[in-house]
């Protein structure tokens, strides 16, 4: 076990906020313990010498996967009615949401 906890309640409250999740106090306690367990387990990675090892974002060596700039015939682009029908709230063909408050970043 590390001397210092790898993350505390405040850290968990912060990430919950970033992830748009609301936690009760009890949940905050429980999640803090569980996440700390996972990070403690992951402490085994700290001993590894990873100097000069490139990070791997994708297991395939593919590059330059491109599509032609052409509209696709068929139904996939023609989903308007289905999508608007399934939406939680719609007005004038647009998705309706409560006021957004701030500007986009």
């Amino acid at each position: 076990m590390p001397e210092k906890p790898r993350l505390n309640r405040e850290d968990v409250a912060h990430v919950a906020d970033l992830a748009r999740l609301a936690l009760t106090d009890d949940e905050l306690d429980a999640f803090t313990g569980q996440l700390a367990d996972v990070l403690d387990h992951a402490a085994d990675l700290e001993a590894l010498d990873l100097d000069g090892v490139p990070p791997m974002a994708n297991p395939l060596p593919l590059v330059n996967v491109l599509r032609l700039d052409e509209p696709e015939p068929g139904t996939r682009a023609d989903i308007r009615a289905e999508v608007l029908d399934a939406a939680p709230s719609v007005e004038d063909g647009r998705f309706r949401v409560p006021p957004v408050l701030g500007e986009a970043p």
């Binding site: 007005e91 004038d92 063909g93 647009r94 998705f95 309706r96 949401v97 409560p98 006021p99 957004v100 408050l101 701030g102 500007e103």
Partner: peptide, 21 residues
């Protein structure tokens, strides 16, 4: 694109927003 409805289209005073993708 978001359109802010109500409050004269001002983002802070809008009653709701409508989104066109």
């Amino acid at each position: 694109k978001s359109t802010h409805v109500g409050g004269g289209g001002r983002i802070h005073e809008a009653g709701h927003s409508l989104i066109d993708y």
